[in-house]
Design a protein around this nucleic acid. Structure first.
Lengths: 211, 211
DNA sequence: GTATCATAAATTGGCGCCAATTTTGGATAC
DNA sequence: GTATCCAAAATTGGCGCCAATTTATGATAC
């Protein structure tokens, strides 16, 4: 009864941070929006202590991935259309702003590295979990932004990405859309190879807004 | 001995969040970079319990305002030149990106409100604490960004502002520089009144980079 | 006089209990 | 049959103790 919302137990080492584990489960869709995260359940599922759980929940609440209701507990945020739109807008601003620098800085090695990560994403599309797909996508975009030369910006975009990912379903609604994303990655790399900053920026914009 | 680093005790209600109190003291310069934040001291200074202190320290560590060294404790981050530069760059990107929208959206009432906040900042320049100055400045920039229509962006900028503020001294080195900031605020408002988006964006850029 | 080591003090950090609040379930009245 | 109220179970959340580690202190040897 207590484990009702968890069907698959994972043998997790207490060493690895609980916050990341819960985060991953939210991103992967294992913990649906609206779900109440009961402390006893989390304690058992991630094989950790009560303070560990509470620290993790507090961190996730700070990141606004879960909401804390006093004396009621923590629950996964419902997807917020406005917020998702605004975060996308911010991503467009930040990622297109460094598009020029990226195109300038990218060496042949960088392009090869990007190609490899894009392929990883494609493979995850075929036979991978939702989480693997998410992480492959993240790795590609991080590597891309890294060429912008602003490390803080890389971390910032990585961070705000998580803010709307409480709705992984609405993000990648269909398999067709995911495959389209994969193709867009390669188109973006092509634009970098041809040193076409304007095209790369426009592709980035469309890729984020998914139009 | 235990209260060595704190010369002025403040009678703080336990209700108000300890995290904000510590944050304010760091921003105001009361807690200098490098200072080790001993849990017993904080406990006494903010008149709160041990778990309160630890939660606050964990949150500040997440925000990268303090660093956590296992079995050693938490200390205020040393100012990081590279990071400060990168954060400024990000702020320029974000705030100039919505400059056009701000100029378009600003009504006569909005301009009046901005003028009032700019005056508040000027007053704080004359006779106000470092913290009051910081908050007056923050209020002005928040009101400004609000006109951009992207609430998430307002919160994001407010958040990343805190990331480099562990060196409040290096930010506003001289009184002359602070007074210059006050004048720039009014120049920015003037640009908005004249609906000159390009000028407003450029003023914003210079204001952030402080050149 | 200085370096080294052992011992004591201080500090962090893990863990668990118990009170306060909320939710659930059932009994009773209408 | 339905609504209301009361009691029991469950859940959150505040608080403090104690072990592990680190730092400071002082004694001893060279």
């Amino acid at each position: 009864m207590a484990d009702a919302i968890f069907d698959s137990r994972v043998e997790a080492s207490a060493a690895r941070d609980v916050t990341d584990l819960i985060l991953q489960d939210i991103l992967a869709g294992a913990l649906m929006p609206g779900t109440w995260l009961k402390q006893v359940d989390l304690e058992r599922r991630y094989n950790c202590t009560r303070p560990d759980v509470r620290r993790a929940l507090d961190r996730l609440a700070q990141k606004r991935l879960v909401e804390h209701v006093p004396n009621r507990g923590y629950h996964v945020y419902e997807p917020d259309g406005r917020r998702a739109r605004e975060v996308s807008e911010i991503r467009v601003i930040l990622e297109t702003a460094v598009a020029g620098t990226i195109v300038q800085n990218a060496s042949a090695d960088d392009v090869r590295a990007l190609r490899k990560l894009a392929k990883h994403f494609d493979e995850a599309t075929l036979n991978g979990t939702m989480l693997e797909l998410y992480e492959a996508n993240l790795a590609f975009h991080r590597q891309l932004l890294m060429l912008g030369g602003n490390i803080e910006l890389v971390d910032l975009v990585t961070e705000i990405r998580q803010r709307t990912s409480s709705a992984p379903v609405s993000q990648w609604r269909t398999r067709a859309r995911v495959e389209q994303s994969g193709r867009e990655h390669h188109m973006m790399i092509d634009a970098i190879e041809h040193r076409d900053g304007t095209l790369f920026a426009e592709l980035t914009r469309q890729h984020i807004l998914q139009k």
